[in-house]
Simulated scan of single mutants.
Amino acid sequence: MLKGHEILGTDKPILRERESNHFFLDEITQLNENPEHYEVAGYVQMTINKQIFYKPVYVKKG
């Protein structure tokens, strides 16, 4: 997970919830898929212990 300053200046959207075609990196590896076939689609905002973090979500290329 990333902090706000780590994604400043990105052209990717900040999402409140991920969509059905979005995957987290750990899900891609659990599916035995090659992460190189995926690209970052945006960042999902998560609150943990009253701190805000951003977790990248991926979509399949093409």
Rank of each mutant, 00 (worst) to 15 (best):
Y43E: 11
F23D: 04
P35C: 01
G42K: 08
F53I: 06
S20P: 02
H37I: 00
I48S: 14
I14D: 06
N21V: 05
E39Q: 09
T10W: 05
M1C: 07
Q45A: 13
D26M: 04
Y43W: 10
M1R: 12
D26R: 06
K3A: 05
E6A: 01
K50Q: 15
S20H: 03
I7P: 05
T10F: 04
G9V: 01
H37N: 13
N32H: 07
D11S: 15
T10H: 12
H22P: 11
I28N: 00
L2F: 09
H22L: 13
H37P: 00
F23E: 06
I52M: 09
R16K: 14
F24K: 14
K61A: 00
E6S: 01
P35M: 04
I48Q: 12
E39V: 08
K61N: 01
I7R: 01
G4L: 03
N34C: 02
K61F: 00
I14R: 02
K61I: 01
F53S: 09
R18L: 12
E6N: 05
V57G: 15
Y54P: 03
K12E: 11
P13G: 05
K12T: 13
V44D: 15
I14A: 00
Y38M: 03
K55W: 04
F53W: 15
P56G: 11
H22Y: 10
N32E: 09
K3H: 11
Y54M: 08
V59A: 03
Q45W: 15
Q30Y: 01
V57K: 10
R18A: 05
E6G: 02
L8W: 03
N49A: 15
P13H: 03
I7Y: 06
D11Q: 11
V40D: 12
Q51F: 08
D11V: 15
E36D: 14
E6Y: 02
D11K: 14
R16M: 14
K12M: 12
K3F: 05
N32G: 01
N49D: 09
E27N: 06
E27F: 11
E17Q: 10
K55A: 14
Y54C: 03
Y54K: 06
Q30L: 12
I14K: 06
V59S: 02
K3S: 15
L15H: 02
L15M: 07
Q45S: 10
H22A: 11
I48G: 07
Q30S: 08
I7Q: 06
Q51W: 12
R16S: 07
T47R: 15
L2K: 10
L15P: 07
A41R: 12
Y43N: 13
Y43P: 10
E33F: 00
Y38D: 01
I28Y: 06
L25D: 04
K3W: 07
Y58D: 11
F23V: 06
K50Y: 13
I48D: 15
E6M: 03
E19Y: 08
F23N: 05
R16H: 12
E6T: 03
N34L: 01
T47A: 12
V59G: 03
T10V: 04
Y58A: 07
N21L: 00
R16V: 11
E39N: 12
Y58M: 09
G42I: 05
Y38L: 04
R18H: 10
D26P: 02
Q30W: 08
I48V: 11
G62A: 04
Q30H: 07
S20A: 14
